[in-house]
Design a protein around this nucleic acid. Structure first.
Length: 1040
RNA sequence: GGGCCUAUAGCUCAGCUCGGUUAGAGCGCUUCCCUGAUAAGGAAGAGGUCGAUGGUUCAAGUCCAUCUAGGCCCA
């Protein structure tokens, strides 16, 4: 027997019960272990940074990381799901710094690196628990027991091995470059970190006059100035040169009594409405070597301050003259080096101007903008100053504006492998596909070397040792290090500061070598997880080769330059093959107003409260099926509550309905049921649709399309509830085994198909309906296989016929609604005109009659003279045959007499119309024929179908309507009295109205049957429940 | 400045791959119906220049180009 399934359900409470069930019966573990030995389907879990608390966007990614492994497991694959935690990196350090109230690296060093790193480790452990709790609550099945931690020594050793491999290939090098640098964190940032942190800010943009000091122009135009534009006034202190575009035209102009040199194209941009007189035009090349007075004379920069040529200068913005500070710009450095100019950097590593510098000494670089601008103004050198809104890179975690800063750094030469990377990308399936050549491909095409090193503490130490003669030794494991060090360090914590204390003798020269001070970018850690998670190559060699590359990874779109890149880059560099084949790339989650969720705005949706409000299933369904996963989506309580109402509760109601009537009838699935072919057509239809469902959802998930699968599932649930159950209710009341068996099977299939989407409610249903009634059923829906779809059972013709039935019913309902006759009132007949109607089986015609409450439904065509015929051209057909002539022929068809045209086409199979005095043949397919009845009918039509209902009510019909009204009133009273649907009753009635007496006389047994009355007598009763009705009758009922 | 995405009803979104003459759904609103799934269900109504312009075509929400606005990413 089924378990009793209440109509009302508290979804979140039910989910907590299911969580206990899974835990008690180790369902997840069994779902994995029972699949061992089956074909492998590999999923890599991208490790969340164990820093801070999880948000709604984490839920999004995890829903997708869950559904496909569940689906593949049901499809017979072995899908190991190893969790992982990204432990290292700046975010963790920053959180700890905040906790300890530190303001920079100096504080950390005073505190002690060992102690600081111990705090970092603690912090990681704390946050991991929150992620684990969230994952469990949402039903994300991932194995946390075997989780990889990027801070574990095994993991670090694997990372070392890969770095040594890259080093040995000559692709890991140290270089001095201008790179983005966070002065607060005291470290450079890689390009993909840079990508995380662009913020729109308003900076002062200043136009500064640099008086010309030497060269021909100085003599010709005394007092003329170069007009230079910059958005980083602080770099003016280090001004070394001014660059111009060699092939651009520059102009000497006079405005307001002053003379300036500026790019001709930009005169209007610079001077606006002001009067400008052009004194001379000259190419950029002629400005070369023109000397000028620099704006600030604060630091010593010898042999500098003249105009140089550079191709990268543009005349799109500013003045066409670009200020050069080689310490603070990659382009600047390259250009100035070519002219042999010195590189002077007045700013210390902490981002503050050197104390010894006048005016700005000790100031933070950004803060100096104000001081310097003010000073320029006082000295009359500031031509103009505008606020300038642009996006400027900020540190992705601490939000400090970055400086481009010349610094030594270690690089992975990814540019040397660019072609291979592009090749690997070519072989990767992106969902959505546009990412491949769009966002990600574009990024790869513009690839720059990976700035790998960080001058920080809590990270994987760069495993390179250097001797006094600069011989470099890369070390691939602790065992290797032991050998080189001449002492056993195999149980050493490979983190700083311990590893820093290990010295080796240089294999080249024998001198003592120490480790370089840097740690590495934590994106490298996570990108190394395909092998490092298994400790490869030091351990698990077979497992690694089996599981590489992954069949599937999934993250949000912000990872294109993050994890998606680091995985592919490391895979390509180390194994010559990317580490994933399919990648699902999700859009961001926005708040209800379409804004990004952020702590600043206070619009962050906390995942656990959200799931405790609506249920994890609802949140999951929303993420998977509501809107397009690739697109940024708005999420809010209203949208999720809608999912519950529309999909989950409809499904649940159907289950509850089935349970109620199966239990009432003492029916169980093992009782057997009539052969499908002998069941009513609607049963055959439902089973056919269920098999179609299994096929189509399978296909959608095979193609990573959860949205399509969700749409199909939702449509099926709607069919199930609002058509099959609605139409078949009476059979359930009667305990018809065919109906019960049909709905049982349909529910089984839809439950299995929905299980990967909404694992909780489907598990509840499995436990209530399927597990108790089938000894062979697995203990959990998640231990079951995907339902097989039998192509022989899928009946397309029946599907189309049922679609027609539903279309006609809809029109019929509309027709009835347009009249003032209630649906409860039976009517004599409806007439239908629709293509395919005449072939419709009687059973389906009967469905229409019952649904519309009419005694017969007939084809409209039989009623000659009753109908108006209209003919419309079928453009699709005409267009393909007649092309340009289509409009004329269409007009001719519309203007022809429809009755004659249709008669001719029907009798002869074709007709002719006159177009420009030529005859054109019209075939049946060229026209759309619609028929509708004339006066006296309620009619509704759409393009091709129409339904007409005879509104004439005779005595018979009227009394049948009264009987229905009496039945309805009694049912209402039964319900109000709290009777069970199976309770039998005694009914008594009295009425002075002969009409009412006649109703009871003719319809008495029908009424009794409907309301489960064992007696129906005409006597006056004083007790019992009084039935409320507008009819002139007093009815009372009592429980029998 | 570059790349990508988006623009359809008051709101949230389908439809566009593959062009066809009445552009759909849900929510919300109004009216009505049904009621043995009932704190459900159904029907009707109001609500659309399918972002703009130009082009291709017999025919454009759909294809092409340009533009505008918003978003994401990069310079």
């Amino acid at each position: 027997m089924y378990k009793a399934v209440p109509a009302q359900i508290d979804l979140p409470a039910m989910e907590h019960q299911i969580l206990h069930l899974w835990d008690r019966e180790s369902v997840f573990e069994r779902s994995v272990t029972q699949a061992q030995g089956r074909p492998l389907w590999t999923f890599y879990e991208g490790p969340p940074t164990a820093n801070g608390t999880p948000g709604a966007h984490h839920v999004e990614a995890r829903v997708f990381k869950d559904i496909f492994p569940r689906y593949r497991t049901m499809k017979g694959y072995f899908v190991p799901r190893q969790a992982g935690w990204d432990c290292h990196g700046l975010p963790v350090e920053l959180a700890v710094e905040r906790e300890l109230g530190f303001s920079g690296k100096q504080d950390i060093e005073e505190y002690g690196i060992a102690e600081f790193n111990a705090k970092c480790r603690e912090s990681v452990l704390r946050h991991v628990d929150e992620f684990t709790a969230m994952s469990e609550r949402m039903g994300f099945w991932v194995d946390t027991d075997t989780a990889y931690w990027t801070m574990n020594p095994d993991y670090i050793e694997s990372v070392w091995w890969s770095l040594k491999t890259i080093f040995d290939r000559g692709l890991l090098v140290q270089d001095h470059r201008v790179a983005p640098y966070c002065p607060r964190c005291g470290t450079g940032l890689s390009d993909h970190e840079l990508a995380q942190g662009y913020e729109t800010v308003v900076d002062p943009s200043v136009y500064v006059q640099f008086p010309v000091a030497s060269g021909p122009l100085a003599e010709k135009y005394p007092g003329v100035s170069l007009l230079v534009w910059t958005t980083t006034p602080w770099t003016l202190v280090a001004n070394t040169a001014v660059a111009v575009k060699p092939d651009a035209t520059y102009a000497v102009v006079r405005s307001d009594g002053h003379q300036f040199i500026v790019a001709e194209e930009l005169i209007a941009h610079v001077f606006g409405e002001a009067d400008v007189e052009i004194l001379e035009r000259l190419p950029g090349t002629e400005l070369e070597r023109t000397g000028y007075h620099r704006p600030f004379d604060l630091v010593d920069i010898p042999d500098a301050h003249f105009v140089i040529l550079a191709d990268y200068v543009t005349t799109d913005d500013g003045t066409g003259l670009v200020h050069q500070a080689p310490a603070f710009g990659a382009d600047d450095l390259q250009t100035c080096r070519a002219y042999g100019l010195p590189v002077v950097n007045p700013i210390a590593a902490n981002g503050h101007f050197d104390d010894s510098i006048p005016l700005v000494g000790g100031q933070f670089f950004k803060k100096a903008d104000e001081t310097l601008t003010h000073d320029l103004k006082t000295r009359g050198l500031l031509f103009r100053r505008d606020p300038y809104e642009h996006s400027y890179p900020h540190c992705w975690r601490c939000h400090t504006p970055l400086m481009y800063y010349a610094q030594p750094s270690w690089y992975v030469k990814t540019t040397a492998k660019k072609d291979e990377l592009l090749e690997q990308n070519e072989a990767t399936n992106w969902y959505p596909p546009t990412i491949k050549w769009g966002r990600y491909g574009d990024w790869l095409t513009n690839n720059v070397d990976w700035a790998l090193s960080r001058n920080r503490y809590w990270g994987t130490p760069l495993p390179i040792w250097r001797c006094p003669d600069d011989h470099l030794t890369a070390v691939g494991s602790l065992a290797e290090l032991s050998k080189l060090a001449g002492s056993d360090v195999s149980s050493l914590d490979p983190h700083r500061p311990f590893v820093d204390e290990v010295t080796i003798s240089c294999p080249t020269c024998g001198q003592q070598a120490g480790r370089v001070p840097e740690v590495i970018d934590c994106w490298y850690d996570s990108g190394a997880m395909p092998f490092a998670a298994l400790g490869y190559p030091h351990r698990n060699e077979d497992a690694f080769h089996e599981r590489y590359p992954a069949d599937f990874i999934c993250e949000a779109i912000d990872q294109t330059r993050g994890w998606f890149y680091s995985l592919m880059a490391i895979g390509t560099l180390v194994f010559d093959q990317s580490s994933y084949k399919n990648v699902v790339c999700l859009g961001h989650i926005l708040d209800e107003d379409g804004r990004k969720m952020s702590k600043h705005l206070g619009n962050v949706l906390e995942p656990i409260p959200l799931m405790d409000d609506h249920g994890a299933d609802a949140v999951r369904w929303f993420m998977l099926a509501s809107g397009s996963p690739w697109q940024a989506r708005r999420v809010g309580h209203a949208a999720i509550a809608d999912v519950v109402r529309r999909t989950l509760l409809t499904y649940w109601n159907t289950v509850s309905f089935q349970s109620l009537y199966a239990r009432t009838a003492q029916w169980q699935p093992s009782d057997g049921a009539p052969d499908l072919h002998t069941r009513p057509l609607i049963d055959q239809w439902l089973i056919s649709e269920a098999h179609r469902l299994a096929r189509d959802v399978d296909d959608a998930l095979e193609n990573f399309d959860t949205q399509r699968g969700g749409r199909i599932l939702a449509a099926f649930v709607d069919d199930l509830s609002n058509w099959y159950v609605r139409r078949s209710r009476r059979r359930f009341w009667d305990g018809d085994p065919a109906a019960l068996a049909t709905l049982h099977e349909a529910l089984r299939i839809v439950t299995l198909c929905m299980a990967p989407y909404t694992p909780f409610i489907t598990e509840r249903v499995w436990q209530d309906l399927f597990r108790p009634t089938d000894d062979t059923a697995p203990d959990s829906v998640h231990l079951a296989s995907w339902p097989t779809s039998d192509p022989l059972i899928i009946n397309d013709d029946l599907g189309e016929q049922m679609a027609l039935v539903r279309r006609v019913v809809e029109l019929g309902r509309a027709a009835r609604a347009s009249s003032s006759v209630r649906t409860r009132q039976p009517l004599s007949r409806a007439l239908v005109s629709a293509p395919g109607w005449s072939e419709l089986p009687d059973q389906l015609v009967a469905e229409v009659a019952e649904e519309l409450n009419v005694r017969s439904v007939d084809p409209l065509g039989e009623e000659a003279g009753l109908v108006d015929v209209s003919v419309k051209p079928n453009f699709r057909e005409l267009g393909s045959r007649f092309g340009k002539a289509t409009p004329g022929i269409a007009r001719a068809i519309s203007e022809a007499d429809p009755t004659t045209l249709v008669d001719t086409i029907r009798s002869r199979g074709q007709a002719t119309v006159m177009v420009d005095s030529a005859e054109v043949e019209v075939l049946p397919a060229d026209v759309i024929i619609a028929e509708s009845p004339r006066e006296g009918w309620a009619v509704a039509s759409d393009s091709e179908d129409s339904v007409a209902i005879d509104l004439h009510i005779d005595e018979d019909l009227r009394r049948a309507g009264l009987a229905r009204e009496i039945v309805r009133s009694i049912q209402e009273t039964r319900k109000g009295a709290g009777l069970d649907i199976t309770d039998r009753i005694n009914v008594s009635w009295t009425s002075a109205d002969p009409d009412i007496a006649a109703v009871f006389d003719v319809h008495g047994s029908e009424i009794s049957g409907e309301v489960l009355a064992i007696s129906l007598v005409s006597v006056h009763q004083a007790d019992g429940f009084l039935v409320t009705t507008d009819l002139p009758v007093e009815i009372r009922l009592q429980r029998a």
